[in-house]
Amino acid sequence: MRKGLTIALLCLGFCGIAQERLQWSGLEQIDFTEVYDKGTASWLQVPQWTLEQKANWDGKQWQITGYAIVLDPVDHVYAISAFPFSSCFFCGAAGPESVMELEFKRPVNLITDQVITVIGTLDLNTSPEQLPITLVGAEIK
């Protein structure tokens, strides 16, 4: 009985670690380099991940709180932002690290600026065609 209880408590402890809360301010340390696209004569930003960032974040379960941004209400595609829509990064108030793409396990219905806490696995991107981070297998807490 005691053994079982100890194992259960240990498991709970691991779950707690697995779902550590990620702070938006912690993402401000991400560095970006600008890549020039000759075809369109424009610059695109590519994140440069450090070994430490990769070790701490990539493939790890985290939870984060922010404002929902609806990208496609029909196919249920959403992003989460550190700031409300009116001041999110593309309005000039913050950097691309202040927004994260969400890939939900199951379709959810959200409205823009709804405050949500999501749990999922961080996927660090290196393509200029994606946001720096995607939270995969996401679930609303």
Binding site: S42, L44, Q45, I69, L71, D72, V77, A79, C88, F89, F90, C91, G92, P96, V99, E101, P128, E129, Q130, L131, T134
Partner: peptide
Amino acid sequence: LKSKAAMLILPNIISE
């Protein structure tokens, strides 16, 4: 767009 996430990347390019 190629991805929905690009909707959050392009505004900065348009503004220029």
